[in-house]
């Protein structure tokens, strides 16, 4: 049985269609990222699963139960908000225990349960603090504990890492992934960062214009992008109108050499540590290549030099449009 299933979901505001005909399925083992630029419908989709958005058409099924018409409170899902939405007037412990208080659990019992969840996120010594006294990463862990306290069957995360600084973001995403594996429930994580999606996901759903552009594992998406949008959005791909149609060639597959017919000019060379990013002007426009620094430097090319640029046939991916 699928842990979470979205069937032909559409969301319409007045005359704007925010989400159109979105369908996907997740099993309990899967960490899923909804990836796309702002306004692509990823957040609306997430909010519709949580019940915070009215659905125009389609169904949301969680753990075999159709929850489409249920209020957020009645759904076996839990949401973690972008800026965590911690209650500023409650202590960390009371924040985590909030849902239990609403459910009518008495004070000592709910505090015991909440403390258990705080231990899970290593924050038990901060139980009596207020959210404003915690760092961003700690607040995020409180939000996680609060979302988990109701034992949800799916956790929905709205850009959970966007408020953190870059280093913390990398630590936290590892924690999120580990938490998902240990809980055995699907996580649906909205992000506009392709790096985050690649690092975290078992399944990436790339969205644009309210529609799903591609669904697949990070590797599938990166190796074989479905269309121009996906190839351009996930980055690292040259999109080229070749004789065989529209193709994408990964930066790492583009070869720059001194032998062979000169068909391009070097525009820019950027040193990025493990590799060089070389930009060349060609008849197809500017293309980029990632190349090993030793190999490239041995060619002795500098900006303005002419060179041969090509890719090995078969390394390109044919795009739909």
């Amino acid at each position: 049985m699928d842990a979470l299933e979205v069937i032909s979901l559409s969301i319409q505001y007045d005359d704007v269609i925010a989400v159109s005909d979105v369908s996907f399925k997740l099993s309990t083992e899967q960490y899923c990222c909804l990836l796309g630029p702002s306004g692509c419908g990823k957040t609306s989709t997430l909010r519709a699963i949580a019940g915070h958005e009215d659905v125009s058409a389609g169904d949301v099924i969680v753990g075999g139960q159709n929850v489409t018409d249920l209020a957020p409170a009645k759904r076996p899902t839990s949401m973690m908000f972008q800026d965590y939405a911690l209650f500023p007037h409650l202590t960390v412990l009371d924040n985590v225990a909030f849902a239990l208080k609403i459910a009518g659990m008495d004070k000592t019992e709910r505090h015991t349960v909440a403390l258990g969840y705080l231990k899970k996120v290593q924050l038990e010594e901060f139980a009596s603090r207020f959210p404003s006294e915690l760092s961003g990463g700690q607040q995020q862990r409180v939000a996680l504990a609060r979302a988990l306290v109701t034992s949800p069957k799916a956790l929905l995360l709205d850009e959970p890492l966007s408020a953190l600084d870059p280093f913390l973001r990398i630590d936290m995403r590892a924690e999120l992934k580990a938490m998902q594996k240990s809980l055995g429930i699907p996580f649906v994580h909205v992000t506009h960062s392709q790096e985050e999606a690649m690092a975290l996901s078992d399944v990436v759903i790339v969205m644009d214009g309210g529609q799903i552009q591609q669904v697949g594992s990070p590797r599938e998406i990166y190796e074989t992008p479905a269309n121009r949008f996906v190839a351009e959005f996930i980055g690292g791909h040259n999109v080229i109108e070749s004789d065989h149609g529209l193709v994408s060639v990964k930066y790492s597959e583009l070869q720059i050499e001194t032998k062979g017919q000169a068909n391009s000019t070097i525009e820019r060379i950027e040193y990025l540590g493990q590799y060089l990013k070389v930009s060349v002007a060609t008849d197809f426009g500017t293309l980029h290549a990632y190349t090993d620094d030793k190999t490239f430097l041995s060619l002795g090319l500098t900006t303005g030099d002419e060179c041969n640029t090509h890719w090995v046939p078969g390394t390109e991916t044919l795009l739909k449009n």
């Binding site: 409170a73 908000f81 109701t150």
Partner: peptide, 11 residues
């Protein structure tokens, strides 16, 4: 979002 978080918690 605090209101939504409360709704999410069943309030």
């Amino acid at each position: 979002s605090l209101i939504e978080a409360a709704k999410d918690s069943g309030a």
